[in-house]
Design a protein around this nucleic acid. Structure first.
Lengths: 172, 172
DNA sequence: GCAAATCGGAACGATTTGGTCGGATTAACG
DNA sequence: CGTTAATCCGACCAAATCGTTCCGATTTGC
């Protein structure tokens, strides 16, 4: 019951992208700098989000990505499913592949179906608009380097980790 | 957002064990035969469940496992956590290890905390007593504490074999 | 005291995941 | 109009995790 790192990154990237004006063209490099996610990984994540229909991609110089829908119409479940595949706790959920021989006589299946729906409902209830809104403590976020459109390196991250963790974040 | 096969097996095994009278000594071999889960895997699963405190193990001939608590006091979340570890969608959830450099300034974290609580709540709401009961009637499923978006898909359950503890086995 | 039965932990192979690289495509500029 | 640079896209490779199997430790029963 833990989402993969890719999905975790996808949520952060999408939440960051949602703070820009609608329709803005955002390159993977820009979002990689802002979020601190390594660029190749950002590319892969955004590629999946695009092929899932959550982002619209534009190739070539000056290209990038933009949100395919308003932020209010994209849910946390959408993002997770775009990266991880369908949200199904087990592989015996209605609609998926049935390779369990207990199929048809398994007693726990209906309960798992209900639990799965509940989990998915909880994730579908959170929209990207919620995620992009500022958290409880605004004073911590004021000094973020997010305004620097041309911020060269990740040096701005010294502000983000004053405890001296350094730039080797995301080690898992 | 999919639970591992081990956790899946654990749910089936626990649900099967809960159908026996409380305090009965159940060997891994017995439950493996009943559930169809391969014996070595059953052993491993039950071992984890025992070390997590959900089962009490007795070694030696005539030994086995028994439920540490009444079935009503064991939740689906307990079983999953026993096998998979803590239910935390990300590694930046309150109380877990903090190795993310965005810590303290990450804007999506509070929202993820809320979503995580919702997911865990959904899993904690279903007890092993529920899982051990075989809902023959679909309307029993409707009354479950899950109020998920959309109607739960229960079609096809008319074909559920109504007879007793039939030999449910994997085709293997 | 012996033997059967059962749990417990260690080791192996396989699948998935995460990250990296080069190629394809397009706009911008001279 | 040609060239350049920026950007996305698909395939490849290492790493971690998962799932399974095997063998040793422990206890009861005779």
């Amino acid at each position: 019951m833990r989402l993969t790192s890719l999905a975790d990154y996808a949520v952060v990237v999408m939440a960051t992208a949602a703070r820009y004006p609608a329709g803005a063209s955002l390159s993977a490099g820009l979002l990689a700098r802002e979020t601190g996610v390594p660029l190749p990984t950002t590319q892969k994540v955004m590629g999946r989000l695009a092929s899932a229909g959550l982002l619209v991609s534009a190739r070539g110089a000056g290209g990038g990505f933009r949100l395919a829908r308003p932020a209010g119409g994209i849910s946390l479940a959408d993002i997770i499913e775009a990266v991880e595949g369908p949200i199904a706790m087990t592989n015996c959920i209605e609609g998926s592949i049935h390779d369990c021989a207990l199929e048809g006589s398994c007693r726990v299946k209906p309960h798992l179906n209900a639990a799965n729906d509940a989990v998915r409902g909880a994730l579908a209830a959170v929209s990207l608009l919620h995620l992009s809104q500022a958290p409880v403590r605004p004073e911590l976020v004021e000094g973020l380097p997010f305004s620097s459109a041309g911020a060269p390196e990740i040096e701005g991250f010294d502000k983000l980790s004053p405890n001296g963790v350094g730039a080797e974040e995301f080690s898992r």
